[in-house]
Amino acid sequence: MKFDKLLVLAAILGVWQMTSLLVGVEVLTPPLGTFAKIGRLFADPDFGGHVWETTRAFALALVLSLAIGLLVGLALGADRLAAEVGEPMLTAFYAIPKVTLYPVILLFFGLGFAAKVAFGALHGIIPVALFTMAGVRNVKPGWLRAARAMRLTKLQIARSVLLPAALPELVAGLRVGTALTLLGTLIGEMFASQRGLGYLLLQAMERNDPATITALALLLTIFATSASALLLALERRLDHARVVA
């Protein structure tokens, strides 16, 4: 198992090195050069501020995505009529390339921090809401009847039946929501922003600085994949319905 993962890592580094040699180092910086660049980035006193800016915006956007997404999902999941009206609307909105709405967001929130957060949250809310809805609908009426027959209080039913029944979907929503919120936050930073990793990325593009681009891409990839892998592992552990004998 460990060995497999090492093999995959070695393959990725190999392909990266080869591609870099094929297209030229002035287009794609090779692995070693990228690692060196990451080291230099962290040595730069300004870099920490940019990382902090993105972290702050992402964290806030994620909290908003989860809170609003959960509320919307619970409200729509609890009522059949609301679900029938709400789900197609959410799915349609999910399909819109949200970047087209960014000018509107900027008009609403002004240039700067608030706009990035709003744009990040805009990406995360819908998947969280959709997965929450699916989670609530996964609760079999028989479980609730059995819980009532076992004389559970409403609070106990919520904690011991509804929550565990919907949990695998909630974690799936959290995973997809996290990935999309990060995407939204970074896109938000690339335009109309003077700080953050997205801003650095766009600046590096304008200055034709492939080493910085590759270094930032690598850092973001590592963060996004580890967050996703962690949540996926949690999801698999929770979903006993998929446990095979």
Binding site: K140, G142, W143, R145, A146, V161, P164, A165, L238
Partner: peptide, 8 residues
Amino acid sequence: EDSSFPWL
């Protein structure tokens, strides 16, 4: 109907 809790 089978109302056993699959997560337990």
